[in-house]
Amino acid sequence: MDTSSTKPIEFFIRKTQRNDVNELLALLNRIIEAGGTTALEKPLNKGEFIEWFLEADILESTVCAIDRETGEPLGFQIASHYGDIPADWVDIGTFVKPGLHKSGIGSALFKATLANLKGKGLVAINATIRADNTGGRAYYTSRGFKDYKVLKAIPLSDGTPVDRICKRFDLIRV
């Protein structure tokens, strides 16, 4: 009988910084290469990562989770004016190191994102999730996001059609 216990991971949340880029890029590219949980299908290079997730004019919030013991980034979340959404909405993306889902990282990232969005005059947050990403859909539902639209049969790069579920979180209550 295995009596060993797994120590819960201890982390803190802070604004994403330039010195996080290499490790967060590697984390994101591992997620992309595994497939099935992000609309991104092609690994990014460092310049693309910085442009999209750190320095874009459309960013409203970019936060990351850092392991207290090792200093390693464990995940990150962005909120930006990306895509075809109303001007007073933001789109959200959440990326957590594989194996650390349900560790509290996603919840802590979302709490920090909400704090960063407070007072910015925004109405809602959009999350567009692949229909086959049951974990991502469950994560956003557990945060209080509600389905409001389905984008039917959006083709992947190989032509495979996959629906996208659009979920909305109203910021009026924040």
Results as ranks from 00 to 15, higher is better:
residue 125 I to M: 13
residue 134 T to I: 13
residue 154 I to E: 13
residue 103 S to Y: 04
residue 25 L to K: 02
residue 51 E to T: 15
residue 168 R to A: 10
residue 87 A to T: 07
residue 153 A to V: 05
residue 120 K to L: 04
residue 139 Y to D: 00
residue 86 P to L: 00
residue 79 A to K: 05
residue 94 T to S: 02
residue 6 T to E: 09
residue 156 L to I: 12
residue 59 L to D: 09
residue 166 C to A: 08
residue 55 E to W: 14
residue 47 G to W: 15
residue 55 E to G: 15
residue 67 D to K: 13
residue 153 A to R: 06
residue 110 F to P: 02
residue 37 T to A: 07
residue 106 G to P: 03
residue 152 K to Q: 07
residue 54 L to N: 09
residue 144 G to Y: 04
residue 90 V to I: 11
residue 173 R to S: 12
residue 87 A to K: 11
residue 126 N to A: 05
residue 148 Y to F: 09
residue 28 L to A: 03
residue 124 A to Y: 12
residue 10 E to W: 06
residue 113 T to F: 04
residue 68 R to F: 11
residue 110 F to C: 00
residue 142 S to H: 06
residue 98 P to K: 05
residue 86 P to W: 06
residue 89 W to V: 06
residue 20 D to V: 07
residue 84 D to N: 13
residue 90 V to G: 02
residue 79 A to R: 05
residue 90 V to P: 02
residue 138 A to Y: 03
residue 103 S to L: 08
residue 61 S to C: 00
residue 69 E to N: 12
residue 90 V to W: 08
residue 167 K to I: 00
residue 142 S to N: 05
residue 85 I to T: 01
residue 171 L to C: 08
residue 49 F to Y: 14
residue 127 A to P: 02
residue 47 G to R: 12
residue 21 V to A: 05
residue 174 V to S: 06
residue 90 V to S: 06
residue 79 A to L: 06
residue 141 T to K: 04
residue 16 T to Q: 08
residue 99 G to C: 01
residue 165 I to S: 08
residue 88 D to L: 08
residue 74 L to N: 10
residue 33 E to S: 10
residue 41 E to T: 13
residue 101 H to A: 02
residue 70 T to H: 12
residue 72 E to M: 13
residue 153 A to M: 03
residue 8 P to G: 08
residue 132 D to K: 15
residue 156 L to E: 13
